[in-house]
Amino acid sequence: MTAGVAGLSVVDLREVALGFGDDCLVLSHRLAEWTTHAPELEEEMALANLALDLLGQARSLLTLAGEADGRDEDQLAYWRDDRDFRNLLLVEQPNGDFAVTMTRQLLFSTFQELLYRWMVTGTEPRLAAIAAKGVMEARYHVEHARLWVQRLGGGTEESHRRMCRALDLLWPYTEELFEPTESWSRAADQGAVPPLSSIEEPWRHSIESLLVDSGLEIPGFPAWQSGGRLGRHSEHLGHLLAEMQHLHRSHPNASW
């Protein structure tokens, strides 16, 4: 293996960037699905903002991931199949109702903000640069999701019931957030990314205190779903990719 910057191998850098980049790309797609369906116009704008931020991050991360073998962002986004995607299962879960979407955002963005905050001072300069920009965006995403979780948790009986259901639905997918791949562990040893175990406690604390404030609680069962980072996805991802990729693949040598 070739040694990259700061002793991080090209393969490990690629895997880490790909995992992150796919998280952003897939979640951006899900958020974009809300277009014209949002509960109010202000939220139409906010969801598009979130989708745009994540798409921007995805493009930077996929560009970085593709450097090793000369593939650009579009080749990575449009020409890989389900088994080669490295995103978390959480972000590919369907939008459901607005409570599901905001819960998913809370769980993911809290995780992402913690990672970015750490990576800003990490040893891999390109990851650090992406994190420096992303951390501001993630902060806003977290705030937006927290405000809605509070409103829905403490709003009406119906919104409270929907929030409980959303938490039950998505909680199983939180296990995977803190499971490092082999590449991740090596990147953490090099100081490019944090050890995931160091993020878990602050993540849990942040989520738990919000839920308590909102009259909600962390589900009483353990999380168990995982496999996304290794390319073992739910059935949902294949459909998402079919939609995202079909036009690009129908015109193999075209530029757009």
Binding site: L25, H29, A32, E33, T35, L41, E42, E44, M45, A48, N49, A51, L52, L55, G56, A58, R59, L62, E73, D74, A77, Y78, E243, M244, H246, L247, H248, H251, A254, S255, W256
Partner: peptide, 24 residues
């Protein structure tokens, strides 16, 4: 969701968002 490049996707998403802003 079907835009054929990520660059075009970003432009289109931002445009449709602008229209929501115009409505507002």
């Amino acid at each position: 969701t079907r835009a054929p490049s990520l660059r075009r996707k970003a432009i289109l998403l931002a445009k449709v968002q602008d229209e929501a802003g115009h409505g507002l």
